[in-house]
Design a protein around this nucleic acid. Sequence first.
DNA 1: CCAGTCACG
DNA 2: ACGTACGTGACTGGT
Length: 985
Amino acid sequence: MSDQKREKIILIDGHSILNRAFYGLPLLSDSEGLHTNAVLGFLNIMFRVLDEEKAQYLAVAFDLHAPTFRHKMYDAYKGTRSPMPGELREQVPVMKDVLRAMNVPLMSLEGFEADDLIGTVSLAMEQKGLDVRIISGDRDLLQLASDTTMVRIPKTKKEGREVENYYAEDVKAKYLVTPSEFVDVKALMGDASDNIPGIPGVGEKTATKIIAEFHSIQNAYDHLDEIKPNKARLSLQDHWEMAQLSYRLALIDRHAPFALPLEQARLGEDNSSLYTKEAMDLLKRLELRQMVRRFADHMQTGPSALPARQAESSANPFEEQRADTDDTEPSGQISLPEESRHDGMDGFREQVYPSGEGSRTADEKSESSKKADEGAKNFRLIEDAAEAEAFLERAVKEEKIGLYVLEEDSRLLGAAVAAGAETVLLLPVTRKQLAILSSGSCLISGINLKEQLSFLDGGDSFPKEQQSRYFDCAIGAYLLNPLAGTYVYDGISSVYTGRLVETREELLGKKSLLNLAGLAEENLALMMSGSAGEKRTAKKQDGPADRESARQALTRFSCLNARTALAAMQPIRDSLEKEDMLRLFTDIEMPLMFTLYHMQQEGILVRGDELRRFGHSLSGRIDELEKAIWEQAGQQFNINSPKQLGTVLFEDMKLPGGKKTKTGYSTSADVLENLAQDVPIVRLILEYRQLTKLKSTYADGLVQYIAEDGRIHGRFNQTVTATGRISSTDPNLQNIPVRTELGAQLRKVFVPKDGSIFVDADYSQIELRVLASASDDQNLIDAYNSAEDIHAITASKVFHVPLDEVTPQLRRNAKAVNFGIVYGISSFGLSQGLSITAAEAQSYINQYFETYPGIKSFLDGCIQSAKTRGYSVTMFGRRRPVPELKEKNFMRRKFGERVAMNAPIQGTAADIIKIAMVGVDRRLREEGLKSRLVLQVHDELLVETEISEKDQVETILREEMEGAARLRVRLEIDMKSGESWFEAH
DNA sequence: CCAGTCACG
DNA sequence: ACGTACGTGACTGGT
């Protein structure tokens, strides 16, 4: 750090990056059929790194002979090298030409691989005092990492690009061995794709363990008798020569007879030496327009034309409102009523946005490689109760802490706390001890807090004054990128703190936390005393050493959770603020977390006996149907197998039906229904399907979830959907049947407890109302304000018939069009839904847009805005990235357009009901009622209501739901009460 | 572990 | 010239 003027060199592993680029991008070719995708990908990666690193030197290494090409995933499977595909092979010389034209030195040497040259040059550069960046897709190069040499591995992920960055300590953090030891590990475990044999019976885990302990193969061999897994010891003994050979193969030669003439590698000021006319011409010939544009920018306007990502984020429709509404005060209040309802709407109304790249991109997130977590050395375990309490007492006096409650199956095992520079795991810990935290006033940051709250609940169920003390990084990360999929500590750590850490699986494997916590004996004792049945021997008692390492891993895992939560809080908050989602987070999502927690705790009462009876009643009919189907088919087969069913119907019975899916015949309900309504077997199959579904998923399926208290405590997930909706799992309570007779019967087993009834309220066409309001289409708004039957009015206007002459058929069609609009209209989709031709569907759509012109321009605006910004936005600022809009593939781009139309509508509706839920939950509690919110089904809320509180509950539901947002049309609800969910809905 | 199917909004 | 409606989760069979 003292040397401000350290220079930096970037060394690229040419074939490896070209390979990555090739498989990371769809095939692409110029008009003469020459493929160019790998060249483009390579240049993209190279320029991204150059922009980030601001280096002074650049060189690229290639193997001299590349007769085969490694494709590791494939090779790992096949055990050999696969030949390089022609489409890639032809790009190698092109790539070299492009690089030459850019004055980039190409390094290669007879008898040496690119690895060796990079190893040699990087060593020489280190010794010269240069910082080194090695860019490769190959993990073997991690052995070259040091304090000044960073190995960067670009990864191609579903969403965007990421780079894994490794200094020596990052290698250590992630792989538990030093870079030089990494060679030994690799030698022991082998690598089929590199033809490194390794030692039989030794995989990654054992290899790591041995080297972590003995530091080298040689030393391990010298201490053979100390090697723990018996199998590994014998194997190493038997295959000593193989081990040595493997080591030589795995080791990169850092002393090849090669020297890079450094001046040839020098990049001009701001990389200007790269932007030559020759290169530009070549890129034009290759028709790589994106690159040509980049070159043009640089050659004309000079280096300052670099994309300035930071500047773009100010292109934000909320900018104006922020001045008066964004007071950053984490008021635990849901203060949406006046100001922000207003500002939300204005933001939504705006349809044409200034251009900008949009949300933070993958490389922005991952560009930085910070030091391997310095806190790691401070991770420790406290087992003593008094010491644990003392620690908690200290921690709670901090301004903020990171917390991770270690639990499994609703059992409290321990808790990790990050406070100041310290992070400890308290194991075991009691609820009473944890109460020290909840009674304090420090900020508590966690990851996935909802699942940990039950252990922090001091008995007051988190009143809203308390709620603002909590910060959930997972929820914040979800808002920032709802497509990420998972929000666990390792991902959050790398994205928001720049620290790469081991994953849960790497630390703990697949073992249960309970066993790792070493509480297994207790547990076993309980089980034995509880059930006097078979004698179970303790599951292979772990030796003390194993047990010790298990505890260490558990400590590290728990502490990483807590430390990441603490470290990521501010970056996440900053990002949320920057992206104008802080209020969404503070006023809607965080309060909602508590509401969902309450709902999960509450559960819903189910009549288990009735449910079982229902299941049995289905069995009889299912058996009958099965027999009848087999009889008609003339053979016995598994009706549940689409494959077998397809064969029977379309081959054996020769029913007309084309292939529809990739794997064979489609036997889905719509195919079957169209196919042959008059063929008896089809009706039987459809009924069979319905009944087996009902039985396996709903009757038998739900019974499994009934808890001791007779209730089902499902989970409501807050970080799953792309649009902002809540999802429901274990079990899914948002798809309980309702549309059929039997479905209705099923809903009768969901009942209120004694002395209560259900009050059920659902929004009337919330999405269409959102659309009316957002589009500001006067005709649709008038339609809503004047009358009740929106579909009939639409039919009347669209089909030009008087309102009282609208037939049910016409109304149905209009309703389908309304749905189609919300889904992101397409003539083909609509034609499917209505079983009409695409042309007819198109004319419906045209007439619809003529009737409601504001909708057309709104939807176009949605697409346009999502295209320029990269994401769509809801009324309350929630974002959904729509990367599909940039794709070349027509179909996927069209999909992107439908998403861009649907997401703001579905998402705004989701925002609104979330606001309502928080309001309902809070008022039920604050007004001292016993009634509780128990379910949410997207536009519906179900409250288990004390009979005496019915009127009050109905008032609350109506006020909170209808008042959740102020739209240009009324938000109406339908409300009913009853003795079961069926009756109330 | 994925594809197909079907339950809901 | 492309061949789908938007968003979910659970269960089954088959690789």
